[in-house]
Design a protein around this nucleic acid. Sequence first.
DNA 1: CTGCATCCCTCTGGATACTG
DNA 2: CAGTATCCAGAGGGATGCAG
Lengths: 137, 137
Amino acid sequence: MSAGHTEVTSGPVVSCSGEHEDCGIRDVLDRIGDKWSVLVVVELAQGVRRFRQLQRAVPGISQRMLTLTVRRLERDGLLTRTVHPTVPPQVEYALTPMGHSLTHLVKSLADWSLEHRDPIARARQEWDDANPGSGIH
Amino acid sequence: MSAGHTEVTSGPVVSCSGEHEDCGIRDVLDRIGDKWSVLVVVELAQGVRRFRQLQRAVPGISQRMLTLTVRRLERDGLLTRTVHPTVPPQVEYALTPMGHSLTHLVKSLADWSLEHRDPIARARQEWDDANPGSGIH
DNA sequence: CTGCATCCCTCTGGATACTG
DNA sequence: CAGTATCCAGAGGGATGCAG
């Protein structure tokens, strides 16, 4: 450990030491990695929301994707969907405790993102500068 | 705090309170959300690796995707690519300090994932059970 | 209001073959 | 070994229209 950074600071990064395979990270990654799940979870972290409220809170989302997203989150047990048999229909979405615990993770993500957005932006700029017409993005 | 869970435990989940927009989370999400970036980062957390080593360490990945993945990570300043002008060619990949800091996040992700994999699996099972032929995944 | 069905287009990513 | 180039199938996701 002479220059730069240490190799491994505190043991293996993931619990499945030697090998990594998926160890189930894939499941979570696929969920938080998709385009809208995180934003919906973040909005629901503020409290119970109805369908239209969610759609307005997440500006770019289409009803199709909002429907798909909340269905998947419901399926994973991250939120609950409560239908009030009124007219017009009223459906309320709320995070489950597990969903709430996920918001902590998301917060870490957001924090890291904010903390490194500038360095990343600069790195990208320099790289694009040094590699014109690479087609990488 | 009577029943269930609290609404907002410690202020807004993301720094961009009222509104959320992207606040730059998108950038990070797109990177860690793709199919291979996280696995490559995890492998590199163990130490410096060469191209073939990486490919063998991440079983399912094709050279095409490995190339694309490391290029993008390099562009973002998360890893360095060192070419040794030998024959046969030898290229070493290593995480930057910023890349290493990301591994901490990934570890949190993996921990959460492992901690909730069973509840999620059960929730999915029950949901699929209650909603046959929904087409949701 | 809440949601499903359909069309359609883009982008991801796998397989394969070729180069320095 | 370390890539690059090409082709191609499938998933993701937007727009729109219809229904309860």
